[in-house]
Simulated assay, not measured.
Amino acid sequence: MSTARRIFAIGDIHGCNARLTMLLERLPLDLEQDALVFLGDYVNRGPDSRGVIETLLDLRSRCPRAVFLMGNHEEMLLEYAADGDIDRLRLLHEMGVEATLASYGAAMRDLQGLSFLPDSHREFLGSLRMSWASGPYLFVHADACPLAGDAGTARKGHSPAADQLLASRRLAGETPTGSDQLVIFGHTAFATPLVRPDRIGIDTGAVYGNMLTALELPAMRFHHA
């Protein structure tokens, strides 16, 4: 992927397709020249997970520099589909998977194997990256340091370490990232973006009635819907 003119990073969507559509309309985006980086957690809790994935698939077809990261909600879906572990099912309940199933007109029995998903949606989930780096920036869902050496790779099978990283909230604290790059992350919801010298958190809790946020780089400008 050649260097993009600008990068727009978008925080956790969680089924809020109306907000996502509104935000995309507000971005001064050049689909040919700019990169779009989505930080994961596209599904669960919100009303239209199916619509979110359809919007993202449409963007992928039109934006050659679109990047889609894995969130812990997608990881949990994939892991339960693979092993049917009852503990994962309990966690999926807590993560609001019923809202995702409802958006597809599906029931809990359809979860294993992800049989409720169209083929293109299953392929999309399986293609998600763990992290992505560009110049001075490192983009992750939840945590950075152990991913810094793996910033261009897609998810390759189950990794307990990956589970831990995707669910970590360490970046919301004071511990240094250990990365030479500015880390852009989601996962932990803030009322407004978290801005520190070494990291920026842009999950602003859209699914809880707050705004959906995008960060424009290198301008360091925030956009909201």
Rank of each mutant, 00 (worst) to 15 (best):
L101G: 01
V140A: 01
L138I: 02
L101M: 03
I86Y: 03
A66T: 06
L59Q: 13
G135S: 04
R88G: 00
H121R: 08
M70P: 12
H121K: 03
D83E: 11
R109S: 01
E94G: 02
P146Y: 14
V97D: 06
E94N: 10
Y80S: 00
L77C: 03
C63A: 15
L128H: 00
P146W: 15
G71A: 00
T100S: 00
D163R: 13
Y104E: 08
P118I: 13
A142K: 02
F68T: 07
A66S: 13
D143V: 05
P160I: 11
M108S: 05
E74S: 01
E98Q: 08
A102G: 01
G71M: 09
E74G: 06
T100Y: 04
S134K: 02
S61V: 00
E74F: 04
E94F: 01
S131M: 08
L89T: 04
K156V: 14
L92C: 04
H121Y: 06
A66D: 02
P136K: 07
G135V: 10
A99K: 05
D58S: 14
T100P: 13
S120R: 15
E94Q: 11
G149L: 02
W132G: 07
S134W: 09
L128W: 09
D83F: 06
V97I: 04
G71Q: 01
A107L: 12
P64T: 08
A162V: 15
F116Q: 10
L114G: 12
Q164C: 12
S103D: 05
E79M: 04
M70C: 14
R129G: 11
D58G: 14
